[in-house]
Every structure is written in C-alpha cells, then in structure tokens.
Design a protein around this nucleic acid. Sequence first.
RNA 1: AGGGGAUUAGUGUAACGGUAGCACGACUGAUUCUGGUUCAGUUAGUACAGGUUCAAAUCCUGUAUCCCCUGCCA
Length: 590
Amino acid sequence: MSEPRPRHFIQQIIDADMQSGKWGGRVHTRFPPEPNGYLHIGHAASICLNSGLAREFGGKFNLRFDDTNPAKEEAEYVESIKRDVAWLGADWDGEEIGGGLHFASDYFEQMYEWAIELIKKGKAYVCELSGEETRQYRGTLTEPGRPSPWRDRPVEESLDLFARMKAGEFPDGSRTLRAKIDMASSNMNMRDPVMYRVLRAHHHRTGDTWSIYPMYDWAHGLEDSIEGITHSICTLEFEDHRPLYHWFIDAINEGRTEDGSGEWGGLIHHPQQIEFAKFLLNYVVLSKRNMIRLVKEGHVDGWDDPRMVTVSGLRRRGCTPEALRSLCDEVGVTKFNAVRDMVLLENAMRDHLNKVAPRRMAVLRPIRVVIENYPEGQTEEFEVQNNPEDPSAGVRKVPFSRELFIEREDFMEDPPRKFFRLGPGREVRLRGAYWVKCESFVKNDAGEVVELRCTYDPDTRGGSNPPPDAEGNVRKVKGTLHWVSAQHALDAEVRLFDRLFTVEAPGKATGEFTDDLNPESREVLTGCKLEPALGGRTADEPEWADGVRRYQFERLGYFCVDSDSTPEALVFNRTVTLKDSWAKQAGKGG
RNA sequence: AGGGGAUUAGUGUAACGGUAGCACGACUGAUUCUGGUUCAGUUAGUACAGGUUCAAAUCCUGUAUCCCCUGCCA
C-alpha cells in the first residue's frame, strides 16, 4: 500500500514535545474566529489542522470566538460559524476532542485584572495621545519611534485613569492603555502596543458592561493561557507578533512562581505560538473585504452562493466535509505561501463523491428519441446499479418506453470517426436498457434536429451484448448513453457552475478583481429531464450527515439538491463535472 | 545599514550531511455497460555565485526574487 504520509513541521514539533514531556503529554489546540463574517475554505484548512492535531494526539480542541471588537461583530455570525465548524466535523463538544465552546469576552474581567497588575509592575501606562499622534510617535519602518509624553506618568495616575476608562468616563478613542516596551524596536509591534482602547459599544454578549475592549495582541495569548492551549497555531503574518505574545505572558509571570509563593501568586500557563502559511486558492478571492464586495455588489447571490468558496457556499454546491478534509491533508502544512490549484478542490470532490454518490440518469439538454420498433404504450423497468464502485449500494428500477430523451450533444448529424455516440446509421448502448440504432432524424423549419428515429435490438435487453451471429462474430458498440423515458421523466431546473473568475489571480492585471469575473460562471438550465428516482429520497440512497442529497448524474458530473428545491419544482446544483477526456480531445481539434 | 519569513519537476510537497522521492497535472497504453473509475508506463526539479566536506537540497558566506509588518482590526 501507500507510504505513511510524511509528517509536517507542526506534527514534528508536537512529536518532539511529546518526547520531551514539555506539556505533560497534553495537546490542546483551538480555532479562534472573530465573529464578523463567514468562514471560507482557508478557515476550513485551519479548522482541519487544529482539530486534526487534537484527534491525532488524543488531545482537545476548542472553538473560541475572539469577540474583542463589538464594533464589527454580531451574534448572527456566531451561529453560522458554529454550523460550519460542526459540518466540518471538528467536534468541539464531543467525547473525543471536545475542549468546549469559549468566548474571549468571558475572560474580560481576568484580563482587566492582569492589566492592572502590569500597570502596578510599571509595564503599562495610560496614554492620552490621539490616534493620529500615536501613529506619528510610532515612527516608521526605518526610523525609531518617540516615547509618548505619558509614558512615565506615575503608576497611581495610570491606575486611576484606567479605572475611569473602564467606567466609561472618557469618549471613544480618547485614551489607551499601552504596554511599556521599546519605542525603538525594529519590530513595530513592540513599540508600546495598545492593550486597551476606549470603545463604548454594545457587545453581543457582555452588553454595555465594558467601555474598554482589549486589543488582539494583549488578549489572544491570555485567552490561550486561560484555556490551557499548548500549541497556538496561527498564520504567517503573526510571526512578528510572537515576541509580543511571549512578552505579555512573561510580564504577567514576573513576580510569580510555580508554587504560587511569588508576590503575584502562581505562574500562568504559557502556550507556544506556531505559524503556518494560510491556504490560498487560485481563481477566487479569499480576503474578507473582497468577498463582502462580491455579495454587496451582487456579483453573487449571497454568502452561500455555490460559486463562493465560503464553507456555506461549498456545502450548498454539494461539496462534502470529507472532500475538504482530504484536500487539506493532501496539501500539507508549511511556511511557504503557496497558491493551491483549484483543480485540487475539484478532484477532492470527485474522489469522495465517486465512492459514495448514487448514480442516476438525467438529461440536461434533451432531444427526443422515438424507438420505432418498440410497441406504443408499452413500458418496462430495468434494474440499474446504483454505484459500480460499490455493489452494496444496490440497484434501482428505471422505466423504459417508446419515447425517450437523450443528451442533445450525444447526437451528431455528421460525426467524426472517433465520436462514439449517435449519428445516422450508428448504434450505441442505452445504459442498462437496450442497444439502439439511429435510422433517421427529423428537423424543424429552422434546420435544427428535433427528433431521432431509432430501432432497438431486443436481444440486448439490460444493455448486454447480443449473441454472436452464425459465424461467431460479436457485434460491438463503443458508446453508452444516458437516457430518460419521456413519459416518466421529471422536469427540473439544473444550475451549472463554473469558476467565478477567468484568471488565476483576479485583479492582478488591472488592480480591480471584478474585471476578471467570469460572466458565464453560472448557467441555469430549465426543462431538464430526470429519471423518476430523483423525485425524492429513495430507500436505497445513503443517509447524508448534512441532509444534502447528492448524486452522480451519469456521464455528466456530481449534483446535489439545492436548498431552493421543492417537490413541485426540483432544483439541482452541479458540484463538479466528471473528467471528460472526449471534451479535451474535441477541444484540441482532434 | 529597518525587522521578520520563504525559495526542490508545470503546480504543490518529502528527503533533517550519504540513491532527489511522492501527489496532482500533462502525455501513452490496458480494462470498463459512465469518453467516468481503476491499472501500467512516460515526462520533468534542488533560485544564483562562492566556500566547508570523502560526500551538500541539507552546513557557511554573499546575491536575487517573493510574502508580511508603520489599525485605538483580528
């Protein structure tokens, strides 16, 4: 079989930690979204990584909302994020890896106390510089900053001011609490970073209790510490923040001892921050700013538009959590900012769906076929395999009659030799039914072919080969077509999706990503013809954990029932096409 | 004279001083009641320049290119 997967650098770090006993054999990870938007495929990668490590090492995984900025956050997002994380199988409340659901806002009181401790230790001060002044004092990438005039004010004064900031005495933005570190540091993050700002906003969980809110750098490590996180995994842009992550926890731990006998009591837990490259994909935009524009400007129908690579969009499109997980597995974890190829996502969806999706027949662009030698009014049923990859998936019955629909593109009036489908005088197999031969065709006034007249061979019942002739020669056909009985067919709308953008890096050429939108990213087909089994869930279908019914439409691709679908008006989405080596060959002019 | 990361076939990713391997793509061919799946094969790589070493993708020096950092966002 295949080699065991090489271990990525984070696994290697944890392997070493387990060896050394650094965390007492514990592994505890977390996914810390800010509830201010929808999760996308990049977040999914982080969720898979963090929950996967917890699973692999018998550890725990927390879902933690980093809700430290009420100006941008809403409860609505909390629910969508929980739904998406659960869908991905990162079971934060389960037996196995469940570390629980947490909110940064639950720690506000504790953080506040630690902030006071830092003021008392002379490591933090209240600064009264305005936003603009703060920026000027900070210096630039190549020039050091200057100390704030408030930097050395008495501890008592800072203490008093900080309490009054909390009490809501000062207007938004008028004061900050800053860490006293190094205004000349080459690392901008260390130039007396802001720990708290005055922000008298209503918080979705704490209401109007707080008039000050902690900044990311101050809050994040403390959240990790409180939850006992061992490996705090984040993206590469936080590498510069790591010294600050350590500085804050070290500052709190100064004057503390392991046994709690220190002036300030016992040590607090000090996790390890590890950075990896975020998941990037070509042919899409992943930044929150740009995704919001896609929705707000109406380029897509919403956050769950199947063309969006949001988790909810992918789900609606028919993607499975298994496909996403195996994709993440496949691309690995590194510190190289690689742009992943969209075909990897498409292949991951095909791979999983091929194994589990029941086969059905659906004709998207129908053309009528009349079997001239099949008795009028007669009907019969064929048992057709649900999945050739999995015999245990069973069979279902498909009705056959004199008038059928086949795919318009499966007939050519004047076909090239390598076209294995129907043409005048050509014979093909109708999947699971009979072999049919095209005798003639009918055109309308516009010169379009509207109907095929065929004959069938009763000796090929079930689609099997006919018996050899008198000389022992066996007749063969090259092509097998999907079909639907006209009188039994269900009508449906089918939505085909293509890439949202026509270029790998949208906006690269002009600076405006909307210039690269693919005008044909969605095609809505109506009057599609489905076999009756697609009308509703049948007993032989798998039970999908998320309730989304998915199928392979034979020879076409993978499709799922859209959330707009009703029993009266069926709507399907195409998740991904099948690979099509004929289209590729035909496209090359061969 | 700012700092922090990164660079291995077309695209990703291993090799942790000792045979440059794997996946995807592309291209052949076989099998097939899906032009699908599966199987077999072909293709092609250590950014550059020096150095250390019996031996360098790996260690050292320099260069180039790319990404991130000057929010009271996360």
